[in-house]
């Protein structure tokens, strides 16, 4: 009987916890999708939403996950730095941008999975012997140097509490090296060290105009693309050569 009561109590507590965690954050992004045209050079994604009153907000933009095959540098003959072993980082996000209303370190353990340090523990590294904390850290360092992984402290601006809610907004600068694909913008409200509410929005980045035409051709009609690239290069070289010839003739 006691066991049954304890189980019922546990279930009750669990359902209460789940309903609290299921609190929804409303999210709106401007623009709703990213159009990568010929003149694309990064874009600022404006985010607005509402979170529970008194909470801090963490925003994470990530996506276009893929396997990354790399070489590990090491010292050959104890002297020369060279690419030695091969290793793969599996299903790593192409882009990982995170920001919050406070420095992430000040938001406690609940915010840790969102930090770059927390994120680097989530992916798989092959072969197993290459799966070292150093390699994981180096990978995140490389991506950060390329502007693809970034942790911005205090990038989220909170509004004042209005009843049970408060508004928030942020401007997230998307990198110029953005691959087409589907990205997820997630918002997490943290209160008293716990996740109080969550929300997610889908942001699609797609090629338009000339980049779209070229990519379709390069991947869909590779042989024709290669031949055209060669022919146009030859014609451009000849054209410039002839321009110089006519100049020389005068």
């Amino acid at each position: 009987m006691r066991v049954l009561t304890a189980l019922s109590l546990a279930l009750l507590l669990l359902s209460a916890a789940l309903s609290a965690a299921a609190g929804e954050i409303s999210l709106k992004t401007t623009p709703g999708s990213v159009q990568i045209g010929a003149l694309y050079d990064g874009e600022t994604l404006h985010v607005e939403g509402t979170a529970p009153a008194g909470s801090e907000v963490v925003l994470r933009f990530q996506g276009a996950a893929k396997d990354q095959h790399m070489k590990q540098k090491g010292r050959a003959l104890g002297l020369l730095w060279m690419n030695l072993g091969s290793l793969s980082f599996e299903a790593v996000p192409g882009v990982y941008l995170v920001t919050a209303s406070k420095p992430l370190a000040d938001l406690g353990p609940a915010a840790r999975p969102f930090t770059l340090e927390g994120m680097r523990e989530t992916f798989k590294v092959e072969p197993v012997e290459a799966d070292t904390p150093e390699n994981r850290a180096e990978f995140v360092k490389l991506k950060a140097a390329e502007g693809l992984y970034r942790e911005t402290p205090e990038g989220v601006i909170l509004g004042v509490d209005q009843g049970a809610e408060r508004t928030f907004q942020a401007d997230i600068r998307l990198p110029s090296r953005l691959a087409p694909g589907v990205y997820a913008l997630e918002a997490v409200a943290l209160k008293d060290g716990q996740v109080a509410a969550q929300g997610q929005a889908r942001v699609e980045a797609r090629l338009i105009g000339a980049p779209s035409l070229l990519a379709d051709m390069a991947f869909g009609h590779a042989a024709l693309y290669g031949v055209l690239a060669t022919v146009i290069a030859i014609l451009a070289g000849l054209g410039i050569g002839l321009v110089f010839q006519s100049k020389g003739a005068h």
């Binding site: 390069a218 042989a223 290069a233 451009a236």
Partner: peptide, 24 residues
């Protein structure tokens, strides 16, 4: 150029075109 286009899809023609106008 033709082999890389077919096998690896790694020829960026826009990049090549800007480079080649300069280099020609």
């Amino acid at each position: 150029t033709i082999m890389q286009s077919i096998e690896n899809h790694t020829v960026d023609f826009v990049l090549a075109l800007i480079l080649l106008i300069g280099s020609s």
